[in-house]
Amino acid sequence: MTGIRLVRQREWAFPPAPVRREVLSATPTGAADAPPVLFVAGFGQGAWVFAEHWLERTAERGFPAYAMSLRGHGESGPAAKATLRAYVHDVTQVAASLPRQAVLVGHGASALVVAMALARYPARAAVLVAPVFGGVGAAFSALGRAPLGTVPALFGRPLRLRRGLLLSREVPAADARRYAARRRGGASGRAQWQLVAHRAPEEPVGNPPVLVVGSPDDRIAGRALAAVAHRYGGAPLLFPGMGHDLMLDARWQEPIDAILDWLDKPGQ
């Protein structure tokens, strides 16, 4: 139990405000013995990014599949002053509402949110997709790669990243424009600042297996993949040639099938 906090007095006394949460789902055909998989969309994105391909693919493979939008994102309720703690609360509340112990899958900055939620929710397993764990170094790197999209975020405005940082050149331009048009809402300025300066996530409850997935060509998270995977005692599962948004890229099927293959292994 070392490193695990059992009592969180501040969180008990001052819980985040309730908010409407968008949760999409896909149900396998026939009885499903597999654990439910909860996908958590990253900052500036909503549950739709998983509903595009990964949600149905997960259900086809026999896993009850769910995708959620954090507060202030997608079709979830607005939350202009949300904190990382509020996002963690959203994930743990949705996970706890599922019929069985869930696998948590977080993308981008929501990989950090999922990592923080693992200290509060006893997940069956977790997958961190293109994880953005933040920090001062990552912030300066983002400024160098995308100054026009990153500088407004320093003043509380939404983070805006160009197509070349999110998707590979294999994605048709029409699809990329359609995806860009669907992005609405985003992380609060407060949460964006907390992403730069936050404590390391606490140890997961129950020591669940954790898989890190990403692309070495991801210009947002690629450099950090090995470090995040090392934190959880493994090596990253890499998909060269893909962008940050693996679930929307042209070869989207490769990473989700690899994730589901990993979950199918005995002991996961």
Rank of each mutant, 00 (worst) to 15 (best):
A139M: 13
F140K: 05
S141C: 00
A142R: 07
L143K: 01
R145Q: 09
R145E: 10
A146C: 12
G149C: 01
T150Y: 10
P152C: 06
L154Y: 12
F155Q: 02
G156C: 03
G156L: 01
R157P: 02
L159N: 02
L159Q: 03
L161F: 11
L161E: 02
R163G: 03
L165I: 01
L165D: 00
L165Q: 04
L166R: 13
L167P: 09
R169F: 06
R169D: 15
E170H: 13
V171I: 07
V171L: 08
P172M: 04
A173R: 10
D175I: 00
R177D: 13
A180T: 12
A181M: 06
A181E: 14
R182K: 08
R183C: 11
R184G: 14
R184K: 14
R184Y: 09
R184L: 10
R184Q: 15
R184W: 05
G186S: 04
G186Q: 07
S188H: 05
R190D: 04
R190S: 06
A191S: 14
A191R: 00
Q192R: 07
Q192C: 05
Q192K: 03
Q192N: 10
L195N: 10
L195F: 09
V196K: 05
A197S: 12
H198G: 10
H198P: 08
H198V: 03
R199S: 14
R199K: 11
R199E: 15
A200L: 11
A200S: 12
P201M: 08
P201F: 09
E203G: 05
E203V: 14
P204Y: 05
V205F: 04
G206R: 03
N207D: 15
N207A: 15
P209S: 12
P209Y: 07
P209M: 08
V210D: 08
V210C: 07
L211K: 00
L211D: 10
V212T: 14
V213G: 05
G214S: 10
P216T: 13
D217L: 04
D217F: 09
R219Q: 14
R219S: 07
R219K: 09
I220A: 03
R223I: 01
R223Y: 02
A224T: 12
A224I: 00
L225T: 11
A226T: 12
A226R: 11
A226I: 00
A227V: 12
A227L: 11
A227M: 07
H230R: 15
G233A: 13
A235P: 01
